[in-house]
């Protein structure tokens, strides 16, 4: 804990002297603030994208997991036997978590919207339905089809939502890409701050020399630069985050129909995620300037 505090000392030093000993540089200040704002804005978007893609992948994935059914149409006498046979095949199929024949009541409930209540299911040649829950990897559907054909000729494998599988993979990939983008933006921010801090340190070699002459430690000199860049980046990132937040807020949300596009808004506590962006940016700036200062001060020694 002490070392942790020690690390942040340059930020907390109460005297404002350290900031004044380095001459102000108006233009690069504005550039640094602007760049940090832009980076934070992009980060908020990448966050929204990532989280939305993740939600999508999860939802679709869950639907997929309980998506397949088997329909058995057989003469009344063979119905029970073929159902039994199909269930047996399913229990032996890798990738199937569970399989369950729907009860008559459940089948009736499914048909009710179409035929109204009071339909005597057991007296009609209604196919028997088997609900399949599969693992994330899923089963080999061709193999299952072949075996069903052999064991229960009346069974038809119905995979009506399987087409979504590549979409789920794409959503997962998009989620990953979002996080990679955030990582890249973070690294770019670090690189930008390093470049700016390096230039500023080099431009102030004379100032550093004078400070050393009067007994300034490297820590003191570094803190003047570190605080300056950390505060600039924090300011910029805060502005960028607020703008990004507002932009996401203005996205239409909620409707099921639009799917991905309308799902870009944050949901629930995810609205808190953007709050992480400015401190993260400041931390990156802090570390980058600290490293740059240490390096340049070492070279100037």
């Amino acid at each position: 804990m002490k070392r942790f505090l020690e690390f942040f000392k340059p930020l907390m030093q109460a005297d404002l002297g350290a900031d004044r000993v380095v001459p102000p540089s108006g233009f690069t200040v504005r550039l640094t603030v602007f760049t940090s704002a832009a980076m934070a804005f992009l980060t908020v978007f990448a966050l929204a994208l990532s989280l939305a893609a993740d939600r999508l992948a999860t939802n679709w994935g869950e639907e997929l997991a309980r998506s397949s059914t088997i329909r058995i149409s057989a003469p009344a006498g063979q119905m029970a036997a073929q159902t039994e046979a199909a269930l047996k095949v399913l229990t032996q199929t890798p990738g199937v978590v569970s399989a369950r024949a729907l009860t008559a009541e459940e089948q009736q409930a499914l048909l009710e919207p179409w035929f109204g209540p009071g339909l005597p299911v057991d007296q009609l040649p209604v196919p028997q339905l088997i609900e399949i829950a599969e693992t994330a990897q899923g089963y080999d559907s061709e193999g299952l089809r072949l075996r069903l054909q052999a064991e229960a000729p009346g069974a038809v494998l119905d995979e009506h939502t399987r087409w979504r599988k590549p979409l789920v993979a794409a959503a997962s990939r998009l989620n990953l890409l979002g996080w990679v983008s955030i990582l890249l933006i973070t690294a770019t921010t670090g690189a930008m701050v390093t470049l700016a801090a390096n230039a500023s340190l080099a431009a102030n070699a004379q100032v550093i020399e004078v400070l050393r002459l009067v007994g300034a430690t490297d820590g003191y000199i570094a803190s003047a630069f570190v605080r300056r860049y950390t505060l600039r980046v924090l300011t910029g990132a805060a502005v960028g985050t607020v703008l990004g937040f507002i932009a996401i807020l203005l996205m239409p949300g909620g409707s099921d129909a639009g799917g991905f596009l309308t799902g870009l808004r944050f949901q629930g506590w995810h609205w808190l995620w953007p709050a992480v962006v400015p401190p993260l940016a400041a931390l990156v700036a802090f570390a980058a300037t600290q490293a740059a200062a240490r390096r340049v001060l070492g070279e100037l020694a």
Partner: peptide
């Protein structure tokens, strides 16, 4: 180390031949 040199300098008042200052700060500072 550089820090030790810095601390030593606080006990040694040096008048540089070419008198370097921080040109953006007033003389008293």
């Amino acid at each position: 180390g550089r820090d030790a040199v810095a601390y030593a300098r606080r006990r040694i008042g040096v008048v540089h031949q070419d008198c370097k200052f921080l040109d953006h700060l007033p003389v008293n500072e």
